[in-house]
């Protein structure tokens, strides 16, 4: 499908708390164009379809190949990465909105620091003794490695949280990405040494118990992280942990 021009309808907001408004831009449709290259075109010519000169739209991006997780937004109503959103296969007009479950910073930029804080809460790291050379890491089977790798590609983009009915702007639900990271660190032989602490972290308010199992998270994840499996497994593990806690206390 080749079109000569393409329209972008963009929801804008000058600052947190400011009133959102819409701008429509008409651009020439170029080969290999994606939503990012359209936004760049708007920077080069920030004039709306009705001829008004406006400030360029702001958004976040970096890698432009769906690996840094920066450019998440709602495109034609669906949350996804803008860099892999090829214009040729998008419906005209292309409607861009910021994610709705994170505070808007400006235009299409949102604040996702909550996700990084969650990684801290679950102790998302391997407790190594230090960075000096003390020899090889643990030997473990490629099968486990493959499982871990599937989880380790999570780029903290937030798509799964935007789509999740439990996750809201104001509650403290951690969301699928965080649960999946608990599973990731617990899979590693050294990481497993702190397994219980991580499980405890998702057994508090906002933890796994609040997950309604709607499973929309897994459908929108651009990295195909097996979130359903992670949720099920962490669900099981936390139940066991709960029993253990009861017996031991």
């Amino acid at each position: 499908m080749t079109r000569e021009t393409i329209a972008l309808k963009i929801k804008r907001q000058d600052a947190p708390g400011a009133k959102p408004y819409w701008n429509v831009f008409k651009l020439p449709s170029l080969p290999h164009a994606n939503v990012i290259s359209c936004l760049q075109e708007i920077q080069r010519n920030p004039v709306t379809a009705d001829g008004k000169t406006v400030t360029p739209v702001t958004w976040d991006c970096n890698c432009l190949e769906e690996v840094c997780g920066s450019c998440t937004m709602r495109i034609n109503g669906r949350v996804r990465q803008a860099c892999t959103a090829l214009v040729d296969i998008l419906e005209d007009p292309i409607v861009l909105e910021p994610m709705s479950k994170f505070p808007v910073v400006r235009d299409l930029q949102v604040d996702r620091s909550r996700m990084f804080e969650n990684l801290r809460k679950i102790k998302g790291w391997i407790e190594i003794d230090g960075s000096y050379d003390i020899g090889e890491g643990p030997v473990f089977p490629e099968k486990i490695r493959e499982k871990a790798y599937a989880l380790s590609q999570c780029m903290t983009c937030g798509c799964c949280l935007e789509a999740c009915p439990q996750f809201t702007l104001t509650n403290d639900f951690m969301g699928a990405a965080t649960f999946s990271q608990v599973r990731y660190f617990n899979l590693h032989p050294t990481g497993a040494m702190n397994k219980e602490e991580r499980l405890e972290a998702v057994m508090k308010s906002g933890g796994i118990a609040d997950c309604g199992n709607a499973q929309v998270c897994v459908e929108v994840c651009p990295k195909k992280i097996p979130l359903t499996e992670s949720i099920a497994e962490i669900g099981r593990e936390t139940t066991l942990q709960l029993l253990k806690n009861l017996v031991l206390k």
């Binding site: 050379d133 090889e136 890491g137 871990a148």
Partner: peptide, 21 residues
């Protein structure tokens, strides 16, 4: 080699051989 071993200890999901190295 020391750098790879360090990254491995830190949990990088490097591809492995049949023996797990």
């Amino acid at each position: 080699p020391a750098i790879i071993r360090l990254m491995d200890r830190m949990g990088v999901a490097f591809n492995r051989t049949a023996e797990g190295h």
